[in-house]
């Protein structure tokens, strides 16, 4: 890894972390949801400042090179995240559907009651 590349990596991961923290501070996101991104950006910072950590884990796991290890790890983390988000979206869609149906049914019931009274 060249010196310049390292600098870029450190800068990018630091900027990302600061940006994520700023967004969370302005409460655009629930804390439960923000934990993932804080951890993720911190992991990037650690790997860019101390590449030896990544080298060490890589040799421990037995991947061919550190780059391979980082790619695999990131892809795995992101895939899991996407999967759980997909579940979440499904649940949200279901809730919206239920709400729309309930709204319509209740409205109809109210109209019916009104007619009974008259």
């Amino acid at each position: 890894m060249t010196f310049l590349l390292r600098c870029v990596l450190i800068c990018v991961s630091l900027v990302l972390t600061v940006y994520v923290l700023g967004r969370i501070r302005h409460s655009k996101m629930r804390i439960e949801d923000s934990i993932f991104w804080v951890m993720f950006s911190m992991l990037l910072v650690v790997f860019s400042i101390f590449p030896k950590v990544a080298d060490f884990i890589s040799s421990l796991v037995g991947t061919y090179s550190t780059a391979n290890f980082i790619f695999t790890l990131m892809i795995f983390i992101l895939l899991t995240k996407v999967f759980f988000q997909s579940i979440k979206i499904s649940q949200l869609e279901r809730r919206v559907t239920e709400l729309i149906q309930m709204l319509a049914l209740d409205k109809e019931e109210a109209i019916e009651k009104e007619e009974h009274k008259l």
């Binding site: 559907t97 729309i100 149906q101 709204l103 319509a104 049914l105 409205k107 109809e108």
Partner: peptide, 14 residues
């Protein structure tokens, strides 16, 4: 029964 938004056939039938 007036659904305020389009749910598709499955949602409407349900």
């Amino acid at each position: 029964i007036d659904l305020p938004m389009n749910l598709g056939l499955a949602g409407a039938f349900q």
